[in-house]
Design a protein around this nucleic acid. Structure first.
Lengths: 263, 263
DNA sequence: TCGCAGTACTTGTGATCACAGTACGGCGAC
DNA sequence: GTCGCCGTACTGTGATCACAAGTACTGCGA
């Protein structure tokens, strides 16, 4: 499961674009992709983190990644820099980087921010969603429901993500959407770890209720109810992590945050 | 005023630490600073942006900055990368970076996020602030009030910032604090531009009311009132920018967002 | 006088090299 | 046998070089 050893990492493919499914474009002859190597490396590692190809706590070294990706170290070091700034990765005292193991408090605070921002977005979506956007949300919801539970946990997580962002896009606040996105990436590795260890069955069942409530609230233009449903969904994730951390403190052991040693 | 020409930029000084005043440490023998050149460059440029040493819209080139800072291009290019990820700087189609000129919508959405997050923090501060933290907040308030209006607008902005963050630190949510900080840096250049053009007098007078209300609310443990005061303060900034943009559309002219050309 | 092409220069990107700091192993002394 | 030292291997950092893409300027020709 974890990509710890020398399992070959596929070369970054040009089709591996951002983490959100791009909206279908109707206009032809859109500008061709002219991205840099560094950008591809960045997106590839980011995707790997979302997909839990790296384990929380795992240390990533520049040269090894460069070798596995078939590039020099330059694109990799800059990609890791970027991920560190986003706090998707964590700086060790040796200046190596690792996948963070979020403490209960950190996870809770990120979830708190998510509740505030995403609740706001859900409220706006209920007010503003167009018919087309509503259809997208419903499609995402169906996709989530139809995800086979025994399938890779990342699939459930992926569908869950797409459902949420289908809602948030309907709020028509692109700048705020960009603030929310990194919060998901930060939670990603730890959340997926939860999926794997706890079994996706129970989690999916819990989320389904909130999803249905959110969907209906948006369809019926009830902003407060939409906000409430999304907040409840996030709160459930937060509390699940709290509980899990308490019960498996040893698993998340090891030297916790690097910064703890600083102050 | 603007640092457009060849005005020498001071070498990054080891004392130029973060943008927040560090809390006084009581324990001796804290770890010595062991930061990298890149980090100093990053903080120096970041500080320069907050202080409005660069004008919104101004293009920054790696080699020129490197020369002015007296380093090779390596630390500078990574510092600019980091600032771009934080969206403090903006990528041009040529892959140069420039100081963003926030559109009215972007500024409004960032302020909306700030109202949600910082309002939350103000509420918590009113619930949790210790006597010592309250003293820090009051000191910051006095410092803001005593700032001479004709002095550099950046001083007012600096004091304002310190007052706000004195409150937020009393919420005891470091992770969320880290989410708020980059929002201030993003707003920085455009806000200070506002100060300069509009005159700090009026702005300071407006903020003073909100500050006093927030301070009293925290002192008297009224969380809802504290949140309200902070939100009102941010909303005033947001609306001032909206108005200013409408009236000075030509000043902020030029090709707006780069991404506008992409879709 | 206008328009176009060619050139020189500036820009960011990526690769390679040199270096300093750290971690970890073995080896020797007590 | 255990503790401490030392050397090796490895890691990130910073500098320099090579290159491709873009821009602006200049000069030639219509």
């Amino acid at each position: 499961m974890w990509n710890e050893g020398n399992n070959p990492m596929p070369r970054p493919s040009p089709t591996a674009s951002g983490t959100l499914a791009p909206k279908p474009h109707t206009n032809t002859l859109q500008p061709i992709a002219r991205d840099t190597l560094q950008e591809r490396v960045y997106l590839r590692i980011r995707q790997a983190l979302i997909n839990s190809e790296f384990k929380p706590g795992q240390v990533l070294t520049i040269r090894e990644l460069a070798q596995r990706l078939g590039t020099s170290i330059m694109p990799v070091r800059e990609a890791l820099q970027k991920l560190t700034v986003e706090r998707v990765l964590e700086l060790l005292p040796t200046r190596s980087v690792r996948v963070p193991v979020l403490s209960a408090e950190e996870f809770a605070q990120i979830c708190e921010a998510r509740m505030l921002l995403e609740g706001h977005m859900a409220r706006l979506a209920a007010e503003r969603a167009t018919a087309e956007e509503l259809e997208r949300i419903e499609a995402a919801s169906r996709a989530f429901l139809s995800a086979k539970v025994p399938s890779a946990p990342t699939v459930i997580q992926q569908r869950n993500r797409e459902f949420h962002f289908a809602i948030y896009e309907a709020a028509h606040q692109p700048t705020m959407l960009e603030l929310i996105e990194p919060l998901w990436v930060r939670c990603g590795p730890c959340t997926v770890a939860l999926f794997i260890d706890l079994g996706a069955e129970k989690i999916k069942r819990g989320a389904t209720t909130h999803h249905q409530q959110a969907l209906e609230a948006i369809r019926e233009r009830r902003p407060a109810a939409a906000e409430e449903a999304i907040v409840a969904d996030i709160r459930a994730t937060s509390e699940r992590y709290q509980k899990y951390r308490r019960e498996h403190a040893e698993f998340f052991g090891g030297p916790r945050s690097v910064r703890a040693a600083e102050s």
